[in-house]
């Protein structure tokens, strides 16, 4: 009895890791359909993209790397799908780290192919530019100031899309952007809100990692951002709003099982701990 209780209260971490590996991998083969109950902030983010009209412009900032891929990539793909479906013009950029561009291009090329969208006509990859404050202020004047050329080294105004982007204006800046959708895994999202939203009043929605979601709730409550998609659960709900089954729907089951397994371990630990105390 005593030995069992000791074992329960002090399970070796290696056992936990081993069980966890199976809890992550095995459910992936099940492919069940899980019910979803989207929260208000996710629905509002979805509607913000849905409300865009033809030839509106969405600026997508992919400020995350492969580490946040499972949480943010599914949302990015759905946002691109929504935009391409309605012929919304898409601009892609990152100002966090170069990795952001790679995951972004990955998604945009995949979705564009599905909707027969042409580079330079329907979407544009602006590239990666570090130096948060300078980038944001530069974009407020003229996008060409920050991105004279696109990712492939051609001037951005040499593309067909540019005439549509500038609308009746001569320059492309925040005034032309109908929605900014930020995918954030670092501190750059705060700067989008604190600098660009506060100074230029750009409409914004964010998809962030689960760890960072609590930090973005104050912005959402203060109505500085119109929507917020947090973590894998948010991504899963976002996919279900679009009635599509992507990466998040596939791996959500793993999270269900893993959360339950962790809870089982916590419960076992507590049972061992409490009964040991009662026995003295």
């Amino acid at each position: 009895m005593r030995a069992i209780l000791d074992f329960l209260a002090l399970i070796d971490r290696r056992i936990i890791y081993a069980v966890l590996i199976f809890a992550i991998i095995l459910p992936l083969f099940l492919k069940p359909t899980l019910p979803s109950s989207p929260t208000k902030e996710v629905i509002e983010a979805y509607n913000a993209v849905e409300s865009l009209k033809e030839d509106d412009i969405i600026l997508i900032s992919t400020d995350y790397g492969p580490s946040a891929y499972p949480e943010l990539q599914p949302v990015l793909e759905v946002v691109l799908e929504q935009s391409f479906k309605k012929n919304v013009k898409v601009l892609l950029m990152t100002h966090w780290q170069f990795e952001g561009l790679i995951v972004g291009i990955n998604a945009i090329e995949k979705v564009a192919k599905r909707y027969n969208k042409v580079y330079g006509k329907d979407y544009l990859i602006l590239g990666f530019k570090p130096g948060v404050l300078g980038v944001m202020i530069g974009l407020s004047e003229d996008f060409r100031k920050v991105f004279p050329t696109d990712y492939y080294g051609k001037p951005i105004d040499s593309y067909e899309i540019y005439k549509k982007l500038i609308k009746d204006d001569t320059v492309l800046n925040y005034k032309d952007i109908n929605l900014l959708f930020g995918f954030e895994a670092g501190a750059t999202g705060d700067s989008w809100v604190q600098i660009v939203q506060a100074r230029y009043g750009v409409k914004m929605a964010f998809a962030v990692t689960a760890v960072m979601a609590p930090g973005y709730f104050p912005y959402y409550q203060a109505k500085q951002i119109v929507g917020l998609v947090g973590g894998l659960k948010g991504a899963f709900d976002y996919e279900s709003l679009n009635k599509s089954k992507g990466l998040a729907s596939l791996i959500m089951i793993s999270q269900v099982v893993v959360h339950s397994v962790i809870l089982v371990f916590i419960l076992l630990g507590n049972v061992g701990f409490i009964i040991r105390r009662i026995l003295g």
Binding site: P155, D157, S158, D169, T170, V171
Partner: peptide, 16 residues
């Protein structure tokens, strides 16, 4: 060549 006035600046745009 397109020339426009904006915010007290004159902005010139043309094609290569």
């Amino acid at each position: 060549l397109v020339v426009k006035v904006e915010n007290n600046k004159v902005i010139l745009n043309w094609k290569h």
